[in-house]
Design a protein around this nucleic acid. Structure first.
Lengths: 220, 220
DNA sequence: TAGATTGTTAATCGATTAACAATC
DNA sequence: TAGATTGTTAATCGATTAACAATC
């Protein structure tokens, strides 16, 4: 039994990246890798990789390294990617449609089972074979299908009330794309905010500041 | 002159969030706020907020707090949001189209000036009034318009070669949505990766592990 | 066995929090 | 002036890195 307790978010957020790199290596036919080689590819220290992996168990062999395929499977298992957690998506606007059609939920531990919107122009359309349903049908759908996660692609104004409502319908996990930090009261609530605007602003800061420094440097 | 040096990424990534909350407060007509009030809303400590802000200068008044409008403007200035850095978007698939139409680049310090794709079915279409151009025209366009940032919405296989090429065309900043960590050789390169799959996997981990703990707890 | 590389402990570094003097 | 809240220094906490014994 692995010692899977109090894993820090810093570690957890690196796991998908490890998994991605190991998948690529496997595709390329690489069977074996050392923490040093992996660290060079990832831009991390070998120490950190070993430290991270040993939060969950000893997956390597001393003097040899890690077996790519095996380590990849282990990390997939730790992340829970073999699950098919039922997810629904709310808000089939530009972004919602793109998420629904572009993302492979299946590879990431989920199964997208429903899409909802309130616009009559969208209801009835299909994305990846999934029909866009009227928001009116949300309650009965959740009662029947019992999804555990909701992708929120609705405007900022709507998201607070909506997340509370979804919580009442039994949904505890939220992948939130709206320009708002949702605060679900439930103690078990899990929220992953994706703030694309924040990300873009961070990029702006870096450009702004880099050019600033150049200007400064030129002055001196 | 503020002491804007060696600001850690941890601080920088909180700035857009501060800016967002302050904008909302301003919209609501709030004129004054203390670090304690703000910390309660943001789920941070007052200490951290004051510490963060004082990386850039003293924006508050002792015994009074911060003037919402003024602080919001200051943070906007620090982030460089009043810039209109020219940006292009490459790859007008589902996600690319959604980013181009859904995001307000203008509010985040950028101006989207070009969209490129290689598919004849897409070339000539318009998104938000911007025509999708043939990838063939990329070089001449960049020579003329000199964009400084590129949004990458292309498949994983294409992104490495593409980012190198864009770097040759003078683009140093990348907002990367492809399922790949780009490594641009240029020393001044700035890359902001948005890994939606990684984010989704992190959510999966949390659900997987929360339920795990419940099962464990029930056993004991 | 010798060489290599892990797993793990200890040391360092950085980020967050606490405390309080400065001051509005 | 008294009360409040900042700006800033010091203390704590956590995450990363270094070192090395264990072992394949």
């Amino acid at each position: 039994m692995p010692k899977r307790e109090n894993i820090s978010m810093s570690v957890i957020r690196r796991l998908p990246r490890y998994h991605r790199f190991l998948s690529h290596l496997r595709e390329k036919g690489v069977t074996r890798i050392s923490s040093t080689e992996l660290s060079a590819k990832l831009g991390l220290t070998a120490s950190q990789i070993r430290q991270d992996l040993n939060c969950f168990g000893g997956f390597g062999q001393q003097g040899y390294g890690y077996i790519v395929d095996q380590l990849c499977e282990e990390i997939g298992g730790i992340l829970g990617l073999r699950n098919q957690y039922k997810a629904i998506l709310i808000g089939a606007g530009n972004l919602g449609q793109a998420i629904a059609s572009h993302m492979s939920f299946t590879d990431d531990g989920f199964s997208l089972v429903g899409i909802f919107d309130s616009s009559p122009f969208k209801i009835g359309n299909r994305i990846n074979g999934i029909e866009i349903l009227d928001m009116e049908k949300l309650d009965s759908f959740c009662a029947r299908e019992k999804p555990v996660m909701a992708v929120l692609c609705v405007p900022r104004e709507a998201v607070s009330e909506l997340s509370d409502h979804l919580c009442q319908l039994g949904i505890r996990s939220f992948w939130n794309f709206s320009h708002y930090d949702i605060a679900v009261k439930h103690p078990d609530a899990i929220v992953e905010n994706v703030h694309l605007n924040d990300s873009l602003m961070t990029l702006c800061y870096q450009i702004h500041n880099a050019s600033h420094q150049t200007v400064q440097a030129e002055k001196e």
